[in-house]
Amino acid sequence: MYAQMVKSTGEGVKTLDEMAPEERAFQEKVDQDIRIEPRDWMPEGYRKTLIRQIGQHAHSEIVGQLPEGNWITRAPTLERKMILLAKVQDEAGHGLYLYSAAETLGVSRDEMTEMLLSGKMKYSSIFNYPTLTWADIGAVGWLVDGAAIMNQVPLQRTSYGPYSRAMVRICKEESFHQRQGYDIMMKMAQGSEAQKRMAQDALNRFWYPSLMMFGPSDANSVHSEQSLAWKIKINTNDELRQKFVDQTVPQAEYLGLSVPDDTLAWNEDKGGYDYSEPDWDEFFDVLKGAGPANHDRLDARKQAWDDGAWVRDGLLAHSEKKHGAKVAAE
């Protein structure tokens, strides 16, 4: 997802009896769906795991602007350009809501940025794939935002108040993203032969990376068991991936495009599609930094951060000077 492979404490989930009174009171609140707020007592592992998860999610929103920003100047019409600008601007907003939520846990925004740039914090694997044609912008909105929505809708009920509120805002804005992407795909799929080929090619390249967004199966992972108990994860990775496949296959059929999976078949018994797993070796390589666009993405973030330093410092100096003048005049 936008947060993949987030490690929690690495220990098994404690039973209520094994917990000290403070922790038991905390867990009982979580079990009763009472939100945990920034100044409430929380286990250190909960706080740390959330910083990792929300931070990674925030970084993904910000880095996710890059593959789409790539097409703003080359959008085929002025209307498409305005729509794409609005969408990319939303993603900046999503990053900001999430950074603010993470900051309530005692980490500063600049610290998180530094950790992204030093490679200590990650962002979603999906943004390490390039957007080669205009159809890719359609595929990103349809599939990538579509997969993100799958994960974000349940997270509106997550136990941490500021995170949950950020998710509510984000979900309100996301469905426009997916629909504008599908709208691009419809235009392409109903267009000339060349446009159709372009749409099919985009689906071919983005299908498996989109399935990877949910992360490898975590049915037996201690990290994910703990996150589920804390309600900072609501569904397993496989549950969400299955839902995504079931939702997306008919949408591809409507477009007249074929999902690049020969084994794809409706399974009456489970009421869902059987499908092929993505290549998990590729996934781990991309996470480690060997994806097609990892270097470009981080370089772009570094450059923006370094080139913006004098602006950040200058504006702060100006504000302090103004404030000083005001105090002197009083």
């Binding site: 900001l96 603010s100 925004r109 509120r165 805002r169 504006l315 100006h318 504000s319």
Partner: peptide, 11 residues
Amino acid sequence: VGSLHAPDAET
């Protein structure tokens, strides 16, 4: 509705 960082009130 939330929070943000800025150098001064106007910004």
